[in-house]
Structure formats: structure tokens, C-alpha cells
Design a protein around this nucleic acid. Structure first.
Length: 245
DNA sequence: CGTCCTGTTTGAGT
DNA sequence: AACTCAAACAGGAC
């Protein structure tokens, strides 16, 4: 569930809770004092990449789904929710296996909205500047860097590098500017495709690289290798994805 | 400061 | 049906 587009879907689905007053709340770890939420009204939901933000007048609850996080709206699973919210109109919102954090500062102070790939204020020039500030940065690490491409995860990374024909181990500083712009444009474009395909339940049907056995362009077997700082798996074609170095 | 390791513990795919 | 793998990140050891 956790890449950026999935968080946008969550934001869409929770619109019904905007303006709703919480009558009952529980948190099954000590991250947040649930009593703080009782009687409070949700004024808005925001997101920054993979962060889902529940906004109250005086503070924000940040939810990060990590790898395994999940949620239920007006229903529950057999497991106790990490965060349970019951509203005055008897609707409920439950989050499981997620990380919770209370934010007391204004969000504009801690989030660079221009770094969120699915934000309408996304700023490509700023992303290029951030990338070029790191001379040794690899393409696979650049896309996974949440301060540069907030919301990109391993699926989007692999699909973007394949679609823009860039080898994951390419040095960003060696990629021609036009090509780098192409990579960024593809990151935005594919993220919106991901959003639609996830809603349609057809996401994995459209994967061209992620978890694929061979290159759909030339049928050469894909290389599957742990790459970059975080050793996340890359799927790539050595023939059609150019190595810039 | 960088790198490696661990904990998290769902849901899709085989 | 049972099993394996992975959508991510923080924090601690060294």
C-alpha cells in the first residue's frame, strides 16, 4: 500500500471524515495519547509523499504505512488497530501496522511541498538542483530519496528507469539534462498512472519492469539486483537502459 | 558520519 | 493451503 499514489487514494477515501468529530479513539502503542483526539474535529487531510496527515486545529497526526500498513473504513480486521477513530455519526476509521507521530509544528515548516511528486506545486527545477548537489548520486538512489522525490517507492523507481531507458546505476551528474528531465517527467506521469491502475486493480498487469522476467522491448532477460544505498531490488535491461557514467 | 543489521508483521502471488 | 517475498523507515551497533 505505501507508495505515494496509494496515499492519495487513501486521502480520497477519507474525505467523508472531514469536519467530523471524534467521539472515541484508541491507539494500541504509546505513540499518541488517544485522549488528545477525543472531542476533536478533523479539519483536513493532507499528504506529503508517503506521509498521510490528519489535521486538527492545533496539531497533526502523521501516519506512515511503512511496508505493511493497512487501513479499513467503516469496518475492521481481526487484529487490533494501531489507531482507531470513531465519529459522532457512527462512522469509523482504523489503521493497522503503521507508524504514528504527533506533529505540533506548522506543516509548512517541516514539509517541502514542492518535493512531493503528486503535489500540484511539484518543482522539477528544484529536484534537478538537489540531485546535482550530490555529485556521486546514482539514478536509483535519487528516485528513492524522499527529500527529492517524495512518494516514489521501489515500484515507481523501477518503472520510471525502464520507461526512460536509464540504467539504475547511472551517475545522475552524467545524465544529459534533457534525459534527466525525461526521467522526472516519467516519474510524475507514471505516478498518476499508478494511481489510476491501483484504483482499477490493474497495477501489476501494467508493470513493464518491476518483477518482470524479460525486457518487453527486446526479450533479453532482466537483471535483478540489489542496488544503491538502501539495497532495494532493481529490475533492469542492460541492453536498452543506458548507463551514464 | 557511513554502513550494516534489525524490527515491524500485511497481503499478493505462487 | 501453506509458504515466500516485499510497497519503507527508524534506530542502534560498530
Amino acid at each position: 500500500m505505501p507508495e505515494g499514489p496509494s496515499i492519495l487514494i487513501l486521502k480520497e477515501k477519507t474525505q467523508q471524515f472531514k469536519g467530523q468529530k471524534i467521539t472515541e479513539a484508541s491507539c494500541n502503542n504509546n505513540a499518541i495519547d488517544a485522549d488528545l483526539l477525543i472531542g476533536k474535529t478533523i479539519i483536513n487531510f493532507k499528504s506529503w509523499g508517503k506521509h498521510f496527515l490528519i489535521c486538527f486545529p492545533e496539531f497533526t497526526v502523521r501516519i506512515h504505512m511503512m511496508m505493511f500498513g493497512t487501513y479499513r473504513i467503516n469496518e475492521h480486521t481481526t487484529k487490533p488497530p494501531r489507531l482507531h477513530l470513531l465519529f459522532s455519526n457512527d462512522t469509523e476509521l482504523n489503521f493497522y501496522a503503521c507508524q504514528l507521530q504527533l506533529i505540533e509544528q506548522p506543516l509548512d515548516e517541516i514539509y517541502d511541498w514542492e518535493a512531493d511528486i503528486m503535489s500540484d506545486v511539484w518543482n522539477s527545477k528544484k529536484a534537478i538542483k538537489k540531485m546535482l548537489d550530490e555529485p556521486e548520486l546514482l539514478a536509483c538512489d535519487a528516485l528513492m530519496d524522499q527529500q527529492i522525490f517524495s512518494g516514489v517507492g521501489n515500484i515507481i523507481k523501477n518503472e520510471v528507469l525502464f520507461r526512460s531507458r536509464i540504467h539504475p546505476l547511472s551517475l545522475v551528474s552524467a545524465i544529459p539534462n534533457k534525459k534527466l528531465k525525461e526521467m522526472i517527467d516519467e516519474a510524475i506521469k507514471y505516478s498518476y498512472e499508478f494511481f489510476e491502475q491501483r484504483k482499477q486493480g490493474t497495477l501489476s498487469k501494467h508493470w513493464q519492469a518491476y518483477h518482470q522476467k524479460e525486457c518487453p522491448r527486446n526479450h533479453v532477460p532482466f537483471i535483478r539486483k540489489d542496488t544503491g544505498r538502501s539495497h532495494r531490488t532493481s529490475f533492469y535491461c542492460e541492453k536498452c537502459q543506458k548507463m551514464y557514467k
